[in-house]
């Protein structure tokens, strides 16, 4: 793997880190399998691209993306809690609807940011190299969001969030409206996914309506890889593991792409297959290990 491939993987891993933290919130904390992210990630990219094109400050466009993603997640939450639709189906419905909405937002299937300002500009102007600017900035943002989530999960609301995922009867008996907790948490998760989309769009220079395909599987793979490698004994550990899992996952993909076996080499179109295999392996290996150890 070349240095540039390495830096590129790092950049992607950090950009997708927000999404992975969001997936951790829904899948692990709330026990809510949420596929909305396949739609809210490109939504964030679309909102950010359109806003920047319209002259909005790139940093402000991140907040707009966050808000848009939050709304998308809340809709999934409302479909599930208020209308009683199964969580998985509710999220698929929102995801499908978002495809149309993303096309409406952009007015076309894809949009480039060529020659437009991005969040990386101030760093590049300050003398940080072209290739180092994105990983550096994304790492800073990641640390910030990690600390925010660590704080949030230790507030009273955060405890209620964890209890909602673990024991609905208990937390309802303590007077917490679990519907509200679910709506807000799924909202936050998708807000983070949308920020990932906005960061990717600005670092790659384009938003595409199809960039969300397979997002959830990649996110889940990162969470599981992180848990397996770095553990999840405490909330802080689990959050950090999710973020590092995202890095490891992207590095593994970059490694696979740089692999050459005689005539054969992987192409980016093989990524979905590789990811699916990785998730299957990550999900079954711990069980296999237990089986072997029990003998």
């Amino acid at each position: 793997m070349t240095y540039y491939a390495f830096i590129g993987a790092l950049e992607q891993g950090l950009a997708y880190g927000f999404l992975v933290l969001g997936v951790y919130l829904t899948f692990r904390v709330l026990d809510f399998p949420d596929l909305t992210v396949d739609g809210s990630l490109p939504l964030g990219a679309a909102v950010s691209a359109v806003a920047i094109t319209a002259g909005v400050d790139p940093y402000l466009s991140l907040l707009l993306a966050l808000a848009a993603g939050f709304c998308a997640g809340m809709i999934t939450g409302i479909l599930n809690t208020k209308l009683g639709i199964l969580h998985l189906l509710a999220s698929i419905l929102t995801m499908i609807a978002l495809y149309s909405i993303n096309l409406r937002v952009m007015g076309r299937p894809n949009m480039t940011l060529l020659g437009k300002p991005t969040i990386l500009e101030p760093l590049i102007n300050a003398g940080v190299g072209m290739f180092n600017a994105a990983p550096l900035l994304f790492a800073l943002l990641s640390v910030f969001i990690l600390l925010f989530l660590l704080w949030l999960l230790h507030t009273a609301f955060g405890l209620a969030m964890q209890a909602t995922g673990a024991n609905v009867q208990m937390i309802t008996s303590q007077g917490v409206n679990t519907d509200r907790v679910i709506i807000l948490t799924v909202g936050l998760s998708n807000g983070l996914a949308a920020v990932s989309g906005a960061l990717l769009c600005q670092s790659q220079g384009a938003a595409d309506v199809n960039m969300g395909v397979g997002t959830i599987v990649a996110g889940l793979a990162s969470v599981i890889v992180g848990e397996t490698l770095f553990g999840c004994r405490t909330i802080g550990r689990a959050l950090l593991a999710a973020l590092l899992g995202s890095l490891v996952y992207r590095l593994a993909i970059a490694l696979a792409l740089s692999l050459k076996l005689g005539q054969f080499s992987f192409t980016p179109s093989d990524l979905n297959l590789l990811t699916a295999l990785l998730v299957v392996a990550a999900l079954t290996l711990p069980k296999l290990r237990q089986k072997v150890l029990r003998r």
Partner: peptide, 24 residues
């Protein structure tokens, strides 16, 4: 709640009927 600590469970109960907000 099994995944929370004893003090966290008690903290949730200590807010029964009040808002579980963004306070510590």
């Amino acid at each position: 709640c099994a995944s929370l600590s004893i003090e966290q469970n008690l903290a949730l109960a200590n807010r029964r009927g009040r808002r579980h907000g963004l306070g510590k």
